[in-house]
């Protein structure tokens, strides 16, 4: 499904701020994989997601998604097949537009549809049905501007928008980190349900160690722009948070250091 082959990225090359963010990283994902990613500050977790999404072009290496080489495709072209959520719940939606207008925009990712077509009754019924799945009562507020929603509601809406047209790949960058615990649980539960229902391939960066082991089917640990640990199957099932910390120490020779890391729930 996703084939990342020895990609590298250096920011601000040749200056005092030179930062090697990814160094020869390779990663292969099968269709339907749900992979969690953990790592210390500056390990390159977000950079990896940005590279796959096309926020910048990589300096070396290639990225193939669903058999198509997207290494040099611009971000807006890649987003046809890639859905994305950020930590900041405000980043995924347009605040002054209504819920249904936001959904209509997300719906643009489906290849069909003429740019001059307007929201139809059928579209509205479809949006309503999908909003009802969130269980937040948003289906009755479709005409309200998104700016009136809470962070959790906005993130749930963004999740719905990112998966309205099922993406080949879903990228989640600590998408529950800025929410209050109840909203975070709700959004994570929705994520798991939507990903499972749609058999969506998913990469999720998290700062929650136990979440990294319990959510999804595979866990990657990153350090210094590379992958230091790749866990799946029975080995992952038997792993505890303490084991994970020890593995990190063995792999990199230092403690896992992340100012937001949660060691338990």
């Amino acid at each position: 499904m996703l084939d990342v082959k020895s990609i590298s990225k250096t920011f601000h090359p040749g200056t005092a701020n030179e930062k090697k963010a990814l160094s020869g990283l390779s990663l292969h994902l099968e269709a339907g994989d749900f992979v969690t990613i953990i790592g210390s500050n500056g390990a390159g977790k977000s950079t990896l997601l940005n590279a796959v999404a096309g926020v910048f072009y990589v300096d070396a290496g290639s990225i193939v998604l669903g058999g198509r080489d997207i290494t040099f495709q611009p971000e807006h072209r890649r987003s046809r097949g890639i859905g994305r959520l950020f930590q900041d719940p405000l980043r995924g939606t347009a605040p002054s537009m209504t819920i249904e207008e936001n959904l209509a925009l997300a719906y643009l990712r489906s290849a069909k549809g003429n740019p001059f077509s307007r929201l139809s009754k059928k579209d509205r019924a479809f949006f309503r049905e999908r909003l009802a799945l969130l269980g937040m009562g948003l289906e009755d507020r479709m005409g309200q501007p998104v700016g009136l929603l809470s962070g959790g509601q906005r993130q749930a809406l963004t999740l719905l928008m990112a998966t309205l047209v099922p993406p080949q790949l879903l990228l989640l960058d600590e998408h529950t980190a800025a929410l209050d615990p109840a909203a975070a649980d709700k959004v994570l539960e929705l994520t798991q349900r939507i990903v499972a229902d749609g058999h969506i391939t998913c990469l999720m960066v998290t700062h929650n160690m136990s979440q990294a082991l319990t959510v999804g089917s595979r866990t990657l640990m990153m350090a210094d722009g590379g992958i230091v640990l790749d866990l799946s199957g029975p080995e992952r099932a038997a792993m505890t948070v303490d084991d994970l910390l020890r593995k990190f120490r063995e792999g990199t020779g230092r403690e896992l250091d992340n100012d937001r890391m949660l060691l338990s729930d």
Binding site: P74, E75, H76, R77, S79, R80, G83, R84, F86, L90, R91, G92, T93, A94, P95, S96, M97, E101, N102, A104, L105, A106, L108, R109, G113, N114, P115, F116, S117, R118, L119, M161, A162
Partner: peptide, 25 residues
């Protein structure tokens, strides 16, 4: 109110989101 019009409106509101809906700002 058309899809193109909506993406123009979103451009002033949130450019990231326009890109995420496969439209070039």
């Amino acid at each position: 109110g058309t899809r193109l019009g909506l993406s123009i409106r979103a451009t002033g509101d949130n450019r990231d989101m326009v890109r995420a809906s496969s439209v070039n700002p």
